[in-house]
Design a protein around this nucleic acid. Structure first.
Lengths: 247, 247
DNA sequence: ACCTGAACACCGTTCAAGT
DNA sequence: ACCTGAACACCGTTCAAGT
């Protein structure tokens, strides 16, 4: 019961150029915007966004950096095209009124996961005005779910904004922590590593200056990214519900 | 580079130079970590964070890039030191239990304002594990305010996280919008410009595919950054209050 | 028409050599 | 001890010249 965002009409790769003599050009896929974006995403998945330089993407495609500029205006546009591709994989929900909260949460989780699979992309989303096709698909879907839950239009519009903010910030934070000094660990091991490191810091804090941080060290490091994200979204939706009820 | 010390007497015959007074060494403040950070912050305020290159900071201080490395390990450490300085200006609150919600909101606004005054700094905060002195001061203060409001320790710890997330994401978003293509306008004019531009986009959307975005164009662009931020924080705190009440 | 080598104007960072 | 010129190994982007 979910429709994908993808499509966009004629966006398929097929340049449909008949190239019969494969003898001349060996098994080298011809360049295209799609090929450039795919190569860039592959590098991102492997080594993170800062490894996505025009030169590196070009090398991946067995060509020179200059050749990319036929398909992509500049690095910034490439980044946004990559983001668009990532967001296109997020399955949208068909509103089922009695499940509106779960559906919103599922949409947010799917978006966060897609972003986290491509470290650095979340920061690109945070730095882009929400007027791309993909962002608007997401906003329309969120609005539909909120309205299905009986949230008034103005609250729904504002909530839409905040939910996307929480989602992209959470993804940014998560993929930063993955890179910052804890590479090499598995995701779960990283979490344990970071959690126990932070607990140690809090426990070692001078109680006079940081009484609460010190005493509540366990609570501060409790829960993994998933649980913290769930708390943020659910609590915000509780607030939305309370607001609706007050009217 | 005409202010260099070595060529001070190049044009005149035999100036006595046994005297190394302030005439020979013009009013050039000696380098220090503080001086480097201040210069970097000044550039950030003027031209944004991407203008903060080691070479540019050095030029600002009338020296070469290599000289900075005596006071700062590298560019990344400089960025974090700048952030620390910015966050240090945020006034913490002395908990007054009956005002806990307002106090949290005020703390968040103060932090957001400080970050927005230095475009780019919010992204640095988002990309840093929350274990710096300044972040811990903020967390301790937030915890104290939440506890003063009767929020249970585990909820307070998680809320602390989410509030900082919303605050830094909001600041990131705001300073991105200020730079992205709307430079030259005053802040308010920029907001009007962006709002009316976005309303036009939403109004022009095909109603069949985007019925809600299209019909609620006005709601989508309503309110300035300040009002949207207030909605996000207040609604989240409503959720926290609802959660407390349920226990 | 498509591709690319070479160049331009930048980066952060290092280090031997100066004072 | 402090400072720095010059160099190294990178960037994104442009463009004349190739096929």
């Amino acid at each position: 019961m979910s429709t994908s965002i993808s499509n966009s009409g004629a966006g398929s790769p097929a340049p449909s150029r008949r190239n019969r003599s494969t003898r001349d050009r060996p098994a080298k896929t011809p360049l295209s915007e799609d090929a450039v974006i795919n190569a860039a995403l592959a590098i991102t998945r492997r080594d993170g966004l800062e490894a996505v330089t025009m030169r590196r993407v070009a090398t991946e495609l067995d060509t020179g950096a200059a050749s990319l500029y036929v398909y992509v205006a500049n690095r910034d546009e490439l980044l946004h095209a990559m983001l668009d591709r990532v967001l296109a994989t997020v399955p949208l929900a068909t509103p089922a009124p009695e499940r509106w909260r779960e559906q919103i949460y599922e949409l947010m989780v799917a978006a966060r996961r897609a972003l986290e699979a491509h470290p650095g992309m979340a920061a690109v989303l945070l730095g882009e005005p929400p007027i791309t096709e993909r962002t608007m698909d997401g906003a329309e879907n969120l609005l539909a779910l909120l309205r299905a839950g009986g949230v008034m239009p103005q609250d729904a519009a504002l909530a839409c904004d905040t939910l996307m903010l929480i989602m992209s910030a959470s993804a940014t934070e998560a993929d930063v922590r993955r890179t910052a000094g804890f590479a090499g660990f598995s995701i779960d091991a990283q979490h344990d590593e970071i959690a126990s490191h932070m607990r140690d810091r809090f426990t070692a804090l001078p109680n006079a200056r940081y009484p609460l941080l010190n005493e509540h060290a366990d609570e501060m490091v409790a829960g993994d990214v998933e649980e913290r994200f769930r708390f943020a979204i659910e609590t915000f939706l509780d607030g939305i519900a309370a607001r609706s009820r007050r009217r």
